[in-house]
């Protein structure tokens, strides 16, 4: 006589998911002074804006999972966003078998286990994509925020370099700056 039996399997798993995104670019800094002097000006300007110098010479400013890294020697800027999350997922599945025609319990249990594992992987993958999308969204938003600051830094370094160059060329008699137009006029006696 055929007897049906049912098994229920439940799998749960907790994973630590990480996602990240970053973009790199190079600041367009004119070579008004020798590269090492331009690097010093850039370093000082960035330090004034909350960047911290690292042992490798780069300057980093962190804001939660966001970080901005500048190499003052090359002008390379890297803006990165990261996201981490501990995600728990649970999956449950029922299966029915028959004692005479099979499948036998062991084989059925293995098959269901595999299916549960695949389902969990799929769910974690979906979570990973969500996390990635969140990191990318944060990066894009941060880029929009940081753009004006980058322009300001470049302009400030250029202005400082011009002033320094003028001092090297002669005696500066007058410096006037127009904040609105960005015009800088330096008069000097050679």
């Amino acid at each position: 006589m055929s007897r049906a039996y049912r098994i229920t399997l439940k799998e749960s798993e907790t994973r630590r998911l990480t996602a990240g995104d970053e973009i790199s670019t190079r600041l367009e800094i004119l070579e008004i002074l020798p590269p090492e002097d331009m690097a010093t000006l850039l370093r000082n300007e960035l330090k004034g804006r909350g960047f911290e110098e690292q042992p490798d010479g780069t300057l980093v400013r962190k804001d939660g999972d966001l970080s901005v890294t500048v190499d003052p020697c090359t002008g390379e800027v890297t803006v990165a966003a990261g996201a981490e999350a501990t995600v728990s997922q649970e999956a449950r599945r029922d299966a029915t078998g028959f004692n005479d025609i099979g499948p036998n319990e062991g084989a059925m249990r293995d098959r269901v286990k595999d299916q549960l594992k695949q389902e969990l992987d799929k769910r974690f993958e979906a979570e990973q994509q969500k996390l990635q999308a969140r990191a990318t969204e944060r990066l894009e938003k941060h880029l929009n925020d940081i753009q004006p600051e980058v322009s300001e830094v470049v302009n400030k370094v250029t202005r400082d370099a011009l002033k320094e160059k003028a001092r090297q060329m002669g005696t500066v008699t007058e410096i006037s700056e127009d904040e609105e137009t960005g015009n800088l006029t330096i008069k000097l006696e050679v």
Partner: peptide, 11 residues
């Protein structure tokens, strides 16, 4: 380049 174009970074 998002940091050099002066344009917003569209999603």
């Amino acid at each position: 380049d998002p940091l050099r174009s002066g344009q917003p970074v569209a999603g």
